[in-house]
Amino acid sequence: DYYKILGIPSGANEDEIKKAYRKMALKYHPDKNKEPNAEEKFKEIAEAYDVLSDPKKRGLYD
Rank of each mutant, 00 (worst) to 15 (best):
A38K: 13
E39S: 11
A38T: 07
R22M: 14
V51S: 12
K18W: 13
D15T: 05
D15K: 03
K23Q: 14
S10A: 10
D1V: 05
A20W: 00
Y3H: 01
E14L: 10
L60Y: 04
Y61G: 13
E47D: 00
D50K: 13
Y3M: 00
A38H: 11
G11F: 04
D15L: 04
K43L: 13
P30L: 10
L52W: 00
K57I: 03
E35L: 13
Y2H: 09
K19T: 13
P9A: 08
I8S: 01
D1P: 04
Y61S: 15
G11C: 06
E47N: 02
I17M: 06
M24H: 03
E35T: 13
Y28C: 07
Y2G: 02
A48D: 00
K56I: 08
E14C: 05
F42H: 14
K32Q: 05
K23R: 09
P9Q: 09
K19V: 14
I5M: 08
I17A: 02
D50G: 06
D62A: 05
Y2K: 05
S10L: 06
Y61Q: 10
N33I: 11
N37V: 10
I5Q: 06
K19Q: 14
G7Q: 13
A48Y: 00
K23V: 15
D15V: 04
D1S: 09
Y2F: 14
A20E: 04
N33Y: 12
K32D: 03
Y21F: 03
I5D: 03
H29F: 08
Y28V: 05
I17D: 00
P30H: 15
A20P: 00
N13E: 08
D15F: 05
K56E: 12
A38M: 10
L60T: 13
P36M: 14
E39K: 13
F42T: 10
G59N: 12
E40C: 11
K19W: 14
A20S: 08
I5S: 08
P30D: 13
I5N: 09
E44K: 08
K23T: 15
I8N: 01
E44A: 10
S10Y: 10
G7I: 00
A46V: 03
E14G: 05
E44C: 15
H29P: 11
I45A: 11
